[in-house]
Design a protein around this nucleic acid. Structure first.
Lengths: 214, 214
DNA sequence: GGGCTCGCTAAGCGACCGCTCACCTTTGCC
DNA sequence: GGCAAAGGTGAGCGGTCGCTTAGCGAGCCC
């Protein structure tokens, strides 16, 4: 808890739930490698090498290379969903909750860009059953955002023509952050989060975000 | 010109400039394979097989597998840039031109999703020089959109806090269409283009799109 | 302190990769 | 008909892939 293992970006002690230690090191190495080169271009020798182990060591902790991706993808999606749920189920008006959800979700994608990249762009590299499991988590992510937008539309706080389409666009905007965000770029994850929250409020027709606060 | 080779989606006779015929068939096969499985997961045997040729035939027309990706990427980016330029340099107010540019660009990504997927997501699979060349094309894409937004901001037609950030978000939204769009999904490329144009106008602070038209 | 388990390594297996090469067929020109 | 160029094939090379297996050393139980 008080160790110096927190990254500056926003991922505080990620993969802490993965044990034993060697398994976590391998998983972390795999996340980096998959994010840099993609799943198919990454070799098991590369992953083991990054973790300071021999190629065979990988197979003590994971049955196949795909199981590594599956674990990364599931834990990553669960984390993302948790971040989104915490924000979207907080107290406040739909406007406040949508802004909070978008800025949290964007911060997660920007700060943990390495993980987010694997989570969002290596879905097709999974086998059919694993992919189906992950899709269910993604459905829940979608439902969470759609819920806020529907509520804001019902209350008249938002002005929305197409709830599903707008939900899609909001999520799309957030997810794509993982593609373009660079840690040494001109913006911090917090700045992008704030900018995107503002843009999303405009998309749902809120012209004065302050109006619903008090 | 009058052949029945136009796809319903919006790509009218793509890759027509690639000759001879065998080279075009190989390139088309590569686009499909890269889009489905990714560059690294695609084998030269698979590409040749889809084109109805032996694996060796590929190397008569292309030096390496990477040259295929390079050609696809360059031609694809040039097409995308052309689509965007045609719309953004049309007559009309910044509002009209931004809406036109976004809807065209989105239609290109949705209708030609196979190509767009390769163009937008396989950039990192290119070697350093090829990647640098493509990056220059992407810079021009960015400049085209930023130009309209800057003009609208200067004229007071748009209400924008951060020109660069907004440009980034607009392009990001359009590009991500290639990730999620499905040809058998509930929306046509035209519908997504219209929806996104509307959302983008809201992002730049245009509340009544009709106001600038006459 | 002997045996047993656990985490790991060195070596390597069979498969498949990108790519090459020797050779064959078709086409057009004189 | 002779013949070169162009476009294609079958076989296969060197290398690397995901993954397996035999064995090694450190720690623990009694």
């Amino acid at each position: 808890m008080s160790t110096a293992e927190e990254t500056a970006g926003g991922e505080a002690q990620p993969w802490g739930e993965v044990t034993p230690d060697a398994a976590r090191r391998l998983l972390l190495a795999a996340v980096e490698a998959f994010a840099e080169r993609g799943y198919h271009a990454t070799t098991t020798r590369d992953i083991a090498g990054r973790a300071g182990m021999s190629p065979a060591a990988l197979y003590i902790h994971y049955k196949t290379k795909e199981e590594l991706l599956h674990r990364i993808s599931r834990i990553g999606h669960e984390k993302a969903l948790e971040v989104l749920r915490t924000a979207s189920r907080a107290e406040g008006s739909p406007t406040e909750r949508l802004a909070g959800a978008v800025s949290s979700f964007v911060r997660w994608h920007a700060g943990g860009r390495t993980t987010a990249r694997v989570v969002q762009y290596e879905l097709d590299s999974l086998g059919p059953e694993a992919r189906a499991e992950i899709r269910e988590l993604r459905r829940q992510v979608d439902a969470e955002v759609r819920g806020i937008i529907e509520e804001g539309a019902r209350s008249g706080e938002f002005d929305i023509v197409d709830v599903h389409g707008t939900t899609l666009a909001v999520l799309s905007l957030c997810i794509d952050v993982a593609r373009w965000f660079k840690v040494d770029g001109p913006r911090t994850p917090e700045e992008v989060g704030a900018l995107y929250a503002d843009l999303v409020l405009r998309m749902v027709g809120v012209t004065d975000p302050g109006a619903t606060r008090k």
